[in-house]
Each structure stands twice: as structure tokens, then as C-alpha cells.
Amino acid sequence: MFEDTHDPFARHILLTPGPTPIHPRAQRALLHGMLGHMDPLVFALNGEIQQGLREMYGTAPDTFTALLAGTGSLGMEAGFANLVEPGDEVLVCVNGSFGARMAEMAARYGARVRQVTAPLGEAIDPAAVAAQLDGAALVAVVHGETSTGVLNPVPEIAELVRGSGALLTVDAVTTAGMEPFHMQDWGIDYVYTGAQKCLSAPPGLAPVAISDRALARYAARRTPTPLWYCDFGGLRDYWVDHSYHHTVPVNLHYAFHAALGAALEEGLEARQRRAAEVGEAILAALAPLGFRPYVADPAVRLPTVLALRLPGGFDDAGIRRALRERDISVTGGLGPTAGLIWRLGLMGEAARPAPYRALMAALEELLGERGLVDRFEEALAVTA
């Protein structure tokens, strides 16, 4: 027998780029009694989720929305599986790990991939996208590049793509649900996120929205979608026609419904302000120690993932390990930025003063520095 040594009521402080702390309403919703995935009550719940996703993503009134039974990476893959056929020209914007993942996935589905790149810590230049648009069937871009803390100029890129005839797919994993998003106005055809990011729901669901143009491209495919599990037609069978396709994780749907409702009640603009205010207070507290923003241009810093360059001589692994022993999780760099930066999550329930106040108090003790908590509080008071 395995011994369960985990305290289910222990309060661990998650300050990572995902997952984020589960919203209390979502936590309670996980305890909902089990229902079948074909139950009328579940279909009614799903209908409310679809409408909430239309509001969160800023879609047209009848845009098809759904939850995929997987994380955000499944949302990414489903777009390429349904919208790309072998030989299609696909233009992928790459300025970090998740843009690179898009390029790899598109290639695996037979696309002829071209890349528009930018150095780590810098945003994609829309002019560079315009220069390579000719002949592209689909353009893919990450809105908030989680690996570097960069906010890419999706509205400007979308404006260029609209006139080209190409479809536009957007990774909104660290933006949707924490700040306004305008799928219809910007002209986006496919967008996805992960439940465990800005909405503070449990991992395991990828909310997607699919435009009529994208569905038309899907319907015109020459060959069946190679990924059966997330075939757009099969998804519509379940979500629209209420016929069986696969078993959905019902209790995750209940938790997601609760978290999405809480986010929309709070308001996306209010959530955006909350993330910005806590982020500014973190910078004010840590800057005197030598921490500085990894993204030099404030205009393209991702509000929901604060990437901080570490001070010289800072013991990244040792300090993060010591924090973990105090039940505080902080994430370092990914790939080329490992050991160079911290990536602090400011999504959903993590974007509140209390968890970062605890971080400042722990760092005061570990670093032998005083004043972090005071500077943090003073900065919050200024923005209040």
C-alpha cells in the first residue's frame, strides 16, 4: 500500500506561470456529484460555458466554442491538426519556446513552415510578418510568450493577416481571461488557452473558439483530420448536436464553469489592473536587490508573467529550493534563460497581494535583506 503523506488542506503558494491557485469556487465545484457526460444537466452547463467563452474571447454571437479534454498544448495541436494539410504554407512567429513548439507541431502535420523570429525578450515585428505573408495559408502567433514574458502585438499582426486571405491562430494561454481579448474585432480564426492559467481552474481543459472561416477551411479539407480526438466535426457533434463523441471530464467542466463565471463577474479590465498593480509592486520591492525586467521595452512586457533578470551571483536553484521548503513555488527560466531569470505568475488567483507578500517576507529571511515587504506595501498603496 502507498502511504498518503500529503496534507490536502496544506496551503502551498504557487507563483508559477501555471498552474495557478485554484479559485475557491472552482475547488468547491470539483465536489459536485458525478453525472454522465450525456446528461441534460451537463449539456445545459456546457451551453453556459460556451456563452461565457464567447464573452471572454470577444467573439461573434454564434462563434463555436468548446472545451478540449486536455491542456493548452492540446489546444495548440488541435488547431494545426484541423486547419493544416500536407504542403500548406504556414507562417509561425517564434520568439520563445512556445512559438517554437507551434512551428514543430505544424511541421509534424505536413506544413511547409516559415518562421518570423525575434530575439528572446523582444516582440515579433509586424513588418517582418508582412514581408513573409505571401502564399501563407495560416499564420500562428503566441500572444503572451510564457517562456520570456513578452507580449506580442497580435492586433497589429491580425490586421495584416486579414488582408492576405490566411487564417490566424493565436495562443492566448497567458492572456485570455486576465485581460480584454477581441477575437471578432481583431479578426482571429482560432484561439485557445489552458484552464489552469488565467482562469485558475484545474488543469485538464483547453478552451477554444473557432471562427466560421476556420470551420469553412476545415470543411474543405481534402483528407480527414488526422487527430480524431479533437476533430472539429466530432466536437460539434457533442457540443452542438449533443451526440456522443468521447467522454468529457464532467467535474472539470463544473470547476471550469465556476472559475469562468468568477472571472467574468470580476471583469476582465479589473483583472488586468490587478495583475499590473501587483507586478509594479514586485518590481518596486526587488529592484534595489538588482532584479530587473528581462523585457527591456515596457510596452511589450507581458503583464501576467513577470520575467525578471536575476542579480549577479544570485543562487537561483538554491533560493528556489529554499522557497519550496517554505511551501512557495517560483519558476526559473526555460531553455536558454535557465539560471538567468525568474518567471513570476500574475494570473488568476496568483495576481493578488497576499502570496507575493509571503514571497517578500521569505526572501527577506533567506537573503538577509530588509525592506522588501515595506517597499511592496508602499507600492501597492500608491496604486490603490
Score class of each variant (00 low, 15 high):
Asp39Glu: 05
Leu45Pro: 05
Leu41Ile: 11
Arg101Asn: 11
Asp39Ala: 08
Ala78Cys: 12
Ala66Ile: 00
Pro61Asn: 01
Asp88Gly: 04
Gly52Ser: 09
Leu41Tyr: 03
Gly75Lys: 11
Val94Glu: 06
Ile49Asp: 00
Gly99Glu: 02
Asn46Ile: 13
Pro40Ile: 04
Val92Leu: 07
Ser73Asp: 14
Thr65Val: 10
Ala78Gln: 09
Asn95Gln: 05
Asn82Phe: 06
Tyr109Ala: 06
Gly70Cys: 09
Val90Ala: 12
Thr63Asn: 02
Ser73Gly: 14
Gln51Asp: 12
Val42Phe: 12
Thr63Glu: 07
Tyr109Phe: 15
Ala66Val: 00
Met76Asn: 10
Ala66Phe: 02
Tyr109Trp: 11
Ala66Arg: 02
Arg101Ile: 10
Leu41Val: 14
Ala60Phe: 07
Arg54Phe: 03
Ala69Gln: 07
Leu67Cys: 14
Val90Thr: 08
Leu68Gln: 02
Asn82Glu: 07
Asp39Ser: 03
Pro40Tyr: 03
Gln50Cys: 10
Gly72Trp: 06
Leu68Ile: 12
Gly72Gln: 07
Asn95Ser: 15
Gly99His: 04
Ser73Asn: 15
Leu41Lys: 09
Val94Pro: 08
Leu45Arg: 07
Phe64Gly: 07
Leu83Val: 07
Gly87Ile: 01
Ile49His: 04
Met102Asp: 12
Gly72Thr: 01
Gly58Leu: 04
Met56Pro: 02
Leu67Gln: 05
Ala107Gln: 15
Gly52Gln: 13
Val84Gly: 00
Asp62Lys: 10
Glu85Pro: 05
Ala66Gln: 04
Val42Gln: 01
Arg54Tyr: 04
Met105Tyr: 10
Leu74Tyr: 15
Gln51Leu: 07
Phe80Asp: 04
Phe64Pro: 05
Tyr109Leu: 08
Gly79Arg: 14
Thr65Phe: 08
Ser73Ala: 14
Glu89Pro: 00
Ser97Arg: 15
Phe98Thr: 09
Phe80Met: 12
Asp88Lys: 03
Ala100Arg: 15
Asp88Val: 05
Pro86Phe: 05
Glu48Met: 06
Ala100Glu: 14
Gly75Gln: 12
Arg108Lys: 14
Phe80Ser: 09
Asp39Phe: 01
Glu104Met: 13
Ser97Asp: 10
Glu104Tyr: 12
Glu55Phe: 00
Val84Ser: 02
Arg101Asp: 08
Ala103Lys: 09
Gly58Lys: 05
Ala78Gly: 09
Ser73Thr: 13
Asp62Pro: 05
Leu53Lys: 08
Val42Ala: 07
Met105Gln: 14
Met105Ile: 15
Cys93Gly: 02
Gln51Arg: 13
Leu83Lys: 11
Phe43Gly: 03
Phe64Arg: 09
Thr63Asp: 01
Val94Gly: 06
Ala60Arg: 15
Val94Leu: 10
Phe98Pro: 02
Met105Gly: 03
Ala81Ser: 13
Ala107Lys: 15
Leu45Tyr: 03
Leu67Asp: 00
Ile49Glu: 02
Gly47Ala: 06
Gly72Ala: 12
Glu104Leu: 13
Thr71Asp: 15
Phe98Ser: 09
Tyr57Gln: 02
Ala44Val: 10
Ser73Ile: 13
Leu74Lys: 13
Met102Ser: 14
Val92Phe: 10
Gly75Glu: 03
Leu74Asn: 14
Glu89Tyr: 00
Ala81Val: 11
Phe64Cys: 06
Asn95Leu: 08
